[in-house]
C-alpha cells in the first residue's frame, strides 16, 4: 500500500534568458493511494503534473511538500539515505523504449547489472543472475535465448518495452509507474503491452500507476481500479474508472472524454460531446478561483472568485469513492457509444 499525502512540487522561477518563467506549481496537494496489486490511471494534458507525479513516486525527483508512505512507513520520517531502498521498489517505465535501453549494451547486460545488486544483497551467485534474467524475459513474453545477446537496436519498439518492463522487475517492485508507456509503440502492439501490465498485477501482485492522456488505455488498465483526472497539478475528479467515464461531473473531465476520437461506423458520439477550441493555449496566470474557470463554458462568477475543493459527490447513483472539485457537478454523457450490430467485431 502506497499513500501519497498532499504532495506538492514547486519548480523555482527561472530569471533572465529566453526561457524565463515564474515559479511553477507542478503539483498542488495531490493525495492518492495505490493498494498492493491495484491499478490507478492518471489522465491529464501535458503540463498537468502527471509526469512529475510519477517521477517523484519513483524517487527520481524531490518533492516540495507533503509525504509518501509505504506500508505505513512515512518516508519523511527516514533520513535521506534510507529512503532510496523504498523508492527502488517503485519503478518507472519510460515513455520512449528507444532511449530507455542503453544502446551500447546487450539485453543480458541491461538485466544483469541490476540483478547483480540483488544477488549481492541476497547472497546469490552469477548463475542465479543468468537464470533470473531468462525467467524475467520469459515472464514478459520474450524468447529469453533469442533476446539475451541482442542489442536494443535489433528489437522492435514493443519488444524493447517488454525488456524495459523485465528490467524493472529485477528489483522486485511493489509498483510500476508506466508513464505513457504505450504511446510510442505501434498500434497493433499496444494492447499486448497493456495486457502484460495487467497480467503482472495478477501474477505478481504489482500495483500499476498508469499515466496517460489516452483515456481509453487508462480505462483498459484500470478497469477494476481508479481513475484520477489531474489539471494543472490538482486532482479535479477521482473515482472508480467506469463511473468517471460514464458519469463525469467535472467539465474538464468531460472535455478530456469528448476529445477521444469517435470510430464513426462503429460508434456514435455521446449527446453532450463538446470540444472546446477557445482558450486552449492560456495556461498562464491564475486567479483566486477555479483553475479551469478560464476555459470552462459553464463557469460563473463564483468559479472566478472561489476555489472549489475536492469533495465527495453525494449523488444517490454514485459510489462513495467518487470525488470532484467543481461547484456545479452535473453528469454529462460525452463518451461515444458502440453501435449495436449483428456483425460486430
Amino acid at each position: 500500500m502506497i499513500e501519497v499525502r498532499k504532495l506538492e512540487k514547486v519548480y523555482p522561477p527561472v530569471v533572465g534568458g529566453l526561457l524565463s518563467h515564474n515559479e511553477v506549481r507542478a503539483l498542488r496537494g495531490v493525495s492518492l493511494s495505490i493498494s498492493d496489486g491495484g491499478a490507478l490511471s492518471i489522465i491529464g494534458e501535458s503540463g498537468c503534473g502527471k509526469t512529475t507525479f510519477g517521477r517523484i513516486l519513483a524517487g527520481l525527483e524531490s518533492y516540495s511538500g507533503g509525504d509518501i508512505a509505504m506500508d505505513g512507513i512515512a518516508l519523511n520520517s527516514l533520513p535521506n539515505n534510507e529512503r532510496q531502498p523504498y523508492f527502488r521498489r517503485i519503478q518507472l517505465i519510460h515513455q520512449d523504449p528507444y532511449t530507455a535501453l542503453n544502446p551500447s549494451h546487450t539485453i543480458l547486460h541491461a538485466m544483469a547489472v541490476p540483478l547483480r545488486i540483488q544477488a549481492k544483497l541476497q547472497k546469490k551467485n552469477d548463475d542465479w543472475v543468468l537464470k533470473r534474467s531468462k525467467e524475467l524475459l520469459a515472464m514478459v513474453g520474450l524468447d529469453p535465448v533469442g533476446t539475451l545477446y541482442k542489442y536494443p537496436h535489433a528489437l522492435s519498439g514493443g519488444q524493447r518495452q517488454r525488456v524495459v518492463i523485465a528490467r524493472a522487475l529485477t528489483v522486485d517492485p511493489k509498483v510500476l509507474v508506466a508513464d505513457e508507456a504505450v504511446s510510442m509503440i505501434d498500434v497493433s502492439m499496444r494492447l499486448s503491452i497493456l495486457n502484460l501490465l495487467s497480467d503482472l498485477r495478477v501474477r505478481l501482485g504489482i500495483g500499476i500507476v498508469f499515466i496517460t492522456h489516452d483515456v481509453a488505455a487508462a480505462r483498459y488498465i484500470a478497469k477494476d481500479g481508479a481513475l484520477c483526472v489531474l489539471y494543472r497539478g490538482e486532482v479535479v475528479e477521482y473515482g472508480q474508472t467506469d463511473e468517471i467515464i460514464v458519469r463525469p461531473v467535472h467539465p474538464y473531465t468531460q472535455a478530456m472524454l469528448s476529445a477521444m476520437p469517435v470510430l464513426r461506423g462503429l460508434e456514435e458520439a455521446g449527446p453532450d460531446r463538446y470540444i472546446p477550441l477557445e482558450g486552449m493555449d492560456d495556461f498562464e496566470g491564475e486567479g483566486p478561483g477555479c483553475l479551469f474557470a478560464p476555459r470552462c463554458r459553464h463557469a460563473t462568477t463564483l468559479c472566478q472568485e472561489q476555489h472549489p475543493d475536492l469533495v465527495p459527490w453525494d449523488d444517490r447513483l454514485s459510489s462513495s469513492s467518487h470525488h470532484h472539485a467543481c461547484f456545479y457537478p452535473i453528469p454529462r454523457n460525452v463518451v461515444a457509444r458502440p453501435i449495436n450490430r449483428e456483425n460486430a467485431l
Binding site: 527520481l60 519510460h94 529485477t170
Partner: peptide, 25 residues
Amino acid sequence: RSFVEAARGLGLSRRQIVFGEVFPN
C-alpha cells in the same frame, strides 16, 4: 536519456552509471 534515469531508479551506483552506462556510449 531515460536509460541513465532508469539506472538511477534501479539503484546503480554513480560510478556504475558514469563508467558502465555513459562511458560505453
